[in-house]
Design a binder for these strands. Structure first.
Ligand code: FES
Ligand code: FES
Lengths: 150, 150
DNA sequence: TTAATGTTGACAAAATTAGTAGGGTATAAT
DNA sequence: ATTATACCCTACTAATTTTGTCAACATTAA
């Protein structure tokens, strides 16, 4: 099991938008080059995100994509659910209650897995990602300085 | 995202074995009929589980499959990992450290998701499932009795 | 105008999933 | 001994999903 590239690529790309939040649109070309992701493929992903109101576009030269809301108002879950579809582990959870429920003991398991995933992705915003990323960068900087000293 | 039928079917089937723990082997035919799962397909799943030492077999008439360990010693994670492969959310987590780590802020997210999934599946045993199932059955019984009274 | 950029819809290769099919082997029951 | 039951194993395949590609078009800044 692995999250598909839709979610993985999409989240990276949206994070890139949040890095540029308040500084005008970012073109797909830049993002696709930075992360080495097919431009046309990213386009499809962003199209969905636009339809769902998470990003906006500016057409024409110097145009591009930008977040439609503040980074702190967009959760990882919003992005992943838009791109991957409902994040679920069993067909029986999201549809009508399974007819076999009474003989099947697995339902509870899958429900727990699902809840724990939701708990993570719905409580991390793009702003949180930014903070964490800043810390990682800072740590790396210190490491590099230590290397240079020795 | 959804767990594949390998994990979903497999877990159901193995749970069925734990229901019969200590009472001799259970044939694939019975399991496949009870849950309406292809017998041949289940066979492939059980074959993997046998190779990994979670179940044993008895060949010949009246034969079948049985758990190789006590239900409390087999976790949901063991079964799911055997059947689904490594439960991961990002390619960058299980292989050599990603070269793009320093520019990519998503790694932390996927790590958290993965850990929370592991936390669930590695801490629920077949014995736990059995307890929970017993409770559900008991609750249903009470409900039915109340229905009959009214 | 022209070059940069987003928009849209169709198409398609590759991989994975979800099985099927069928012959083989072991063993309990008769 | 024979037969029915059941696991064992390998190969094959249909369907679906993933992971893109392609091309024609619309908008706008410079
Ligand atoms: S078969 Fe639907 S809940 Fe288990
Ligand atoms: S690209 Fe590998 S961790 Fe993000």
């Amino acid at each position: 099991m692995i999250l598909s590239t839709k979610g993985r690529y999409g989240l990276k790309a949206v994070f890139e938008l949040s890095l540029n939040y308040g500084e005008g649109p970012v073109s797909l070309k830049k993002i696709s080059e930075k992360y080495d992701i097919s431009e046309n493929y990213l386009e499809q992903l962003f199209s969905k995100l636009k339809k769902n109101g998470y990003i906006e576009t500016v057409r024409g030269a110097q145009g591009g994509y930008l977040l439609a809301k503040e980074p702190k108002e967009i959760t990882v879950g919003m992005i992943l659910r838009t791109l991957e579809g409902e994040i679920t582990t069993s067909e029986c959870l999201n549809r009508e209650v399974c007819v076999r429920e009474s003989i099947c003991a697995t339902r509870g398991i899958f429900e727990k897995i699902e809840n724990s995933i939701s708990n993570v992705i719905d409580n991390i915003t793009l702003a949180d990602m930014y903070e964490e990323h800043k810390n990682i960068i800072a740590e790396e900087k210190i490491k590099n300085e230590q290397k240079n000293l020795s």
